[in-house]
Design a protein around this nucleic acid. Structure first.
Lengths: 159, 159
DNA sequence: ATAAACCTTGGAGTTTAATCTAAGGTCAAG
DNA sequence: CTTGACCTTAGATTAAACTCCAAGGTTTAT
């Protein structure tokens, strides 16, 4: 039997987190001591590890609640149900990755267009790109009046 | 001059969003009508578009607040400052992408190991992977006792 | 004059996963 | 018998970016 702090340390979470999981129906200690302390047994610990592994692959606690209810009643669920949860999560993750990839490309383009030097930002390509509605980012090296700018290497926009 | 609903429609946001931006110091109407209605001019609209473009490349409103303060006082900032904001955002985005890529790989591996059929989840590879601490995902086709399983194609784990 | 569509304000609710606080009870060691 | 580490509870707070609500005032058209 583990007290809350012991299980928390064992699984590298905080005691607060375990109380939070209990309040939200994910994990309750199987018993209490006479003085009201939570007591977790090995099977509680296994359940916690299940939760933590599911978190590690990206499931939210709400989704883990679903997984746990299947886990406790496996014979009344099909593989299709379980795989459905995984695939739906996979779709969400892919969508988010795709959004972030758009950000990545846009930010990289902005970064590449800017010399990043000590010049005044008055002609900064980044600010200009955010001011105008074009996707088209202009290189700022000319505007800075540095004929032999040391930053030319940074100009990669197709103006 | 635009009333709040007009500017909202023009820029495809909600009036609530404009009030929210005002409350958070991102965009205030340049005047009010006699009856207290917000009145936005063309320069307010430009500022809103700046905000929206910055959002579209992944900046948070807090970061946009910084960008706006630079934008309004360009000559006292250097390109390095602006590029710094972009690069720091880029690093955050890359980190998040990397985390999601881990999720993606793990979820795909789980999905691939599961037949996804109408079989009982009692031997579901996904649940078994979450129960045990191995990275090693076992294919469930044998466990289902389908000698000529129609799901064999889904088994791709290296058990 | 009255209905519809618009606007005002302050404040509450949403989502996620904790994290923290206050005020107090329990347990083991010295 | 007191100190420190641990535990209890309920409830408040955090971040982010809105979104919605109630209760009322304004504008416009008929």
């Amino acid at each position: 039997m583990y007290r809350i702090g012991e299980l928390a340390k064992l699984c590298e979470v905080k005691a607060d987190t375990l109380r939070f999981y209990e309040k939200h129906g994910l994990l309750a200690p199987s018993s209490r001591s006479d003085s009201g302390y939570r007591l977790y047994n090995e099977s509680d610990a296994e359940r916690l590890r299940f939760i933590l592994r599911a978190k590690a692959v990206g499931f939210t606690l709400a989704e883990i609640t679903e997984l746990l209810s299947i886990e406790l009643d496996k014979s009344n669920w099909a593989c299709a149900d379980v795989k459905g949860l995984v695939d739906s999560k996979l779709a969400q993750v892919n969508e988010k990755i795709s959004e972030l990839n758009h950000f990545q490309v846009s930010l990289q383009r902005l970064s590449d267009a800017c010399c990043g030097g000590p010049e005044s930002a008055e002609h900064c390509s980044i600010l200009e790109a955010l001011e105008s509605n074009t996707d088209n980012i202009k290189c700022e090296n000319h505007a800075h009046h540095h004929d032999k700018s040391q930053y030319t290497k940074n100009c990669q926009s197709k103006g």
